[in-house]
Design a protein around this nucleic acid. Structure first.
Lengths: 178, 178
DNA sequence: CATCACATGTAAAAGGTTACATGATTCT
DNA sequence: AGAATCATGTAACCTTTTACATGTGATG
């Protein structure tokens, strides 16, 4: 149930409306914890019912501004320091690689080429994002940079792996080693 | 709905019972596409109803042996060659890093140290697995090795990143660059 | 005869996606 | 006046997790 903690975490940095938060989920959190509008408004109401956040102001067009409560802050701390992160093991792309012997080698090769190209694209787009952000010494900036660096390294790794794997397919069953 | 295609993929390599398949999901697929018993038996029945697989033998203790049908094989091909892999963007660990400014630097540092240590452990366990398997020139062996290599590279990358990030926290807000 | 491994099933709850639905305010 | 943006909510459906539930066959 990490959406709950993502919301608490954002509200711990300052109060905001559901609409504001949605923007963050579609922006800086898009590559970390995306959430839909539908999911977000529902969870905000549940959080308010549970007393972890509260409406601190109402604005035009039914806007509700939420702030984190002391209870919410305590729960957030507990989650950050005591709860083990869930490791996400499902990987559609790897499942396909595992089954890639079911298609022609040329198609397998094409699949890996595409993976390499897409990883290169994602890497480049993260690199540009990195350049475009004016990183300062603020806490969010400091830790945000760490997550972006993870993305840069993950995409680089993925690309290198896909290129290596594609070359191995070309080598056929004749060769071993990497 | 990749569980469906994982099952089709396994059955394309030879017929098996739900119980057999469960073993594979808890074994070689554990790091790629884990599935629970409950989910698996339900999906097998749905696949049979849809005509993508069929019961080819019944054994003791109610054992049902399934084989993939031509329709199933066609669907599997379509999925492998035409459908874009779903990219899994949710990452609980990165979400925490993003919010790590909410805890003391020492706790943030401890979090990253633990990530580095866990990644090292997972890497080592994959390395041992790699050594223990007698890779041959069979197709499953060849492509299975590619997925394992991905795991080796991912865990290595994750460890290096966590060590780099931990060092940056020690450097505090005073420094830039990596 | 007891235990372990084999073997399958159902039900409830939680979390996520997609689509539907509505309305107010601001900008051009 | 019309369009874009702001702003929230609901409903149906799907997937996954956890727990419950049952029974057979082989082995010591």
């Amino acid at each position: 149930m990490s959406l709950r903690h993502a919301l608490l975490g954002l509200l711990a940095h300052g109060s905001a409306s559901g609409y504001d938060l949605l923007g963050t989920f579609q922006g800086s959190l898009a590559n970390v914890w995306p959430a839909t509008q539908s999911q977000l408004y529902g969870e905000l109401n549940r959080l308010a019912d549970a007393g972890l956040i509260s409406v601190v102001a109402e604005g035009p067009r039914g806007r509700k501004e939420y702030a984190i409560t002391d209870t919410g802050r305590a729960e957030l701390q507990r989650w950050l320091t005591e709860e083990e992160p869930e490791r996400n093991r499902r990987n559609d792309m790897l499942l396909r690689v595992f089954l890639l012997d079911l298609v022609e080698p040329a198609q397998a090769r094409a699949f890996l080429d595409r993976e390499a190209a897409l990883a290169a694209e994602r890497h480049e787009s993260l690199r540009k994002l990195d350049e475009s952000i004016e990183w300062d010494d603020s806490p969010l900036s400091r830790y945000g940079r760490l997550t972006l660096e993870w993305g840069l390294r993950a995409t680089a790794m993925h690309r290198e792996w896909a290129e290596w794997a594609a070359a191995r397919i070309d080598a056929g069953g004749r060769r071993r080693g990497g």
